[in-house]
């Protein structure tokens, strides 16, 4: 069912002027710092991405990811430290597994797993931060609004 809906979502022309609501859970020690650096260097990234600072992506639970969608997000991503470089040893591995689990639920409920992703970067990689933001913004814009927001 979810695949079908996703196909429909992709096929449909994005609504005129559709700006997706995207929530990014960003780790304090890497992605959030990278966003800060992007700001300092005046590098632009999509304004419709709401950053949520977390002490570690290991703090992000499945229920947080689901709640974001429930409350209107069209896309969600988690941005944590490079694998092996987590400030708390393995918080980003936990996040990776939880994202995988939440993706399964999203497929099951018909929202679609492509609306959720996990990325890894370091505090210095502000270019990558912007790139990731654009990847998600382009993907979700193309997919159109979350099926929950169409109803």
């Amino acid at each position: 069912m979810s695949d079908h809906q996703e196909q429909v979502a992709v096929k449909e022309k994005p609504a005129e002027g559709f700006v997706p609501k995207i929530v990014a859970f960003t780790c304090n020690f890497c992605a959030y710092a990278a966003a800060d650096l992007a700001g300092s260097t005046r590098t632009e990234y999509p304004v419709n991405i709401k950053l949520i600072r977390v002490p570690c992506t290991g703090r992000v639970d499945v229920v947080h990811l689901l709640k974001a969608f429930e409350h209107g997000a069209d896309g969600v991503y988690v941005a944590g430290c490079l694998e092996g470089n987590c400030h708390f040893a393995e918080g980003n591995y936990w996040a990776k597994r939880r994202v995988r689990y939440a993706k399964k639920i999203l497929d099951e409920i018909g929202v679609g797993s492509r609306r959720l992703e996990m990325f890894n970067l370091s505090a210095a990689m502000f270019g990558r931060f912007v790139e990731v933001a654009n990847i998600m913004n382009d993907r979700i814009t193309e997919m159109g609004p979350s099926p929950l927001n169409k109803k």
Binding site: V62, L66, K67, E70, E108, I109, G110, P147, K151
Partner: peptide, 12 residues
């Protein structure tokens, strides 16, 4: 988790 997922499933 179930509450959130179920709400979305039913809506969808």
């Amino acid at each position: 988790i179930m509450a959130s997922a179920l709400k979305m499933f039913v809506k969808n």
